[in-house]
C-alpha cells in the first residue's frame, strides 16, 4: 500500500463516519421530542455533513483520479463504505440516539484534537474547524446522557438499555490496521490506541453523574472498517443512494 493509498483510505474512513451518522440524525427532522431539540439534532447533522464534505474533498484530491465528493458519497458499493458499525445503528428512540452520539463525540473530539497536529496542513485545518463543532456536540450529548440517566425511572431504564446494546460497537472506534500504521508513521494520522484510556475516563465520568453503568459483558462487534456492515446498512444505502442510482450522471 502506498502512502497515497493509505492516506486516502484513512480520510475516507473519517468521512464515512460523519456521513453515515449525519444521515441517521437527518431522520430526526420534524420528529424530535421538542422543537428546540429538533433544531439541535439537525444542527449536529448539518455539521457532520459539512465535515464529510471537507474530508471527502481532501480525499479525492489525494486520490487524484478526478472523482468528486458525490461519487464518493453516493456511488460506492456496500463493501466499500468503511464507517464504524456504531454510526449506522438505527435511531430507535432519543435515548439510543444520544448514547450513540455520546460514544462517538468523545472519540471524535480526541481524534480531531490530535489531528490538529497532522503533518498534512489541510487535514490539520479541517480538524481545527471540526474540533469547535465537535466540542459543542459533546457538550450537548453529555448533558443529555446525564439528564436522561439521572432523570426518571423510565428514562434511566431506556438509556441503560441503549448503553447495554451499543457498548459492543465501541471498541471498533479504536480499530487500527496497516492503513493507520502507514499514516501514523508519517504523522498524517494519529494513533488512537493512545486515547483508549482517555475515552474510558470521559465516558465513566459522565456515566457516574448519569448513574449509568458499563455492561459487564464486553463482547465486541467490528467489521465496518473492512466494509462488513450490520443488517441496517443496506436499507440506509438504498435510501441515500436512490437519486444518484435512478438518475445517473446528472447535475443537481
Amino acid at each position: 500500500m502506498t502512502t497515497q493509498e493509505a492516506f486516502y483510505n484513512y480520510l475516507v474512513r473519517l468521512g464515512d463516519d460523519s456521513l453515515i451518522l449525519g444521515q441517521r440524525l437527518s431522520e430526526w427532522c420534524g420528529h424530535g421530542p421538542i422543537l428546540e431539540e429538533d433544531i439541535a439534532l439537525t444542527n449536529i447533522a448539518l455539521d457532520l455533513i459539512g465535515q464529510t464534505n471537507n474530508i471527502y474533498e481532501l480525499a479525492v484530491s489525494i486520490e487524484n483520479k478526478g472523482s468528486n465528493v458525490d461519487q464518493l458519497a453516493f456511488l460506492r458499493l456496500e463493501k466499500e463504505y468503511t464507517n464504524v458499525l456504531l454510526v449506522e445503528q438505527p435511531n430507535v428512540d432519543f435515548g439510543y440516539t444520544i448514547i450513540r452520539q455520546f460514544f462517538f463525540d468523545v472519540y471524535r473530539k480526541l481524534v480531531f484534537e490530535a489531528l490538529c497536529n497532522s503533518s498534512d496542513e489541510r487535514l490539520a485545518g479541517i480538524a481545527e474547524k471540526s474540533l469547535k463543532e465537535t466540542k459543542y456536540h459533546l457538550k450537548h450529548s453529555s448533558e443529555w446522557v446525564i439528564r436522561l440517566g439521572d432523570g426518571t425511572e423510565e428514562s434511566h431504564r431506556r438509556v441503560q438499555e441503549a448503553v447495554n446494546t451499543l457498548w459492543k460497537f465501541t471498541k471498533e472506534l479504536f480499530f487500527q490496521d496497516e492503513v493507520d500504521q502507514k499514516v501514523i508513521e508519517l504523522g498524517l494520522g494519529i494513533d488512537t490506541s493512545l486515547f483508549i484510556e482517555s475515552w474510558n475516563q470521559n465516558v465513566t465520568n459522565v456515566f457516574t453523574q448519569a448513574t449509568l453503568t458499563i455492561p459487564s459483558n464486553s463482547w465486541q462487534h467490528e467489521g465496518g472498517r473492512k466494509g462488513t456492515h450490520t443488517e441496517h446498512f443496506g436499507y440506509l444505502l438504498s435510501e441515500m443512494q436512490y437519486m444518484q442510482r435512478a438518475y445517473p450522471n446528472m447535475e443537481w
Partner: peptide, 11 residues
C-alpha cells in the same frame, strides 16, 4: 418525546 421531556424536568 414525553418521557424525554419528563426526564429533563425531573433532572
Amino acid at each position: 418525546g414525553a418521557w424525554v421531556r419528563e426526564a429533563a424536568n425531573a433532572f
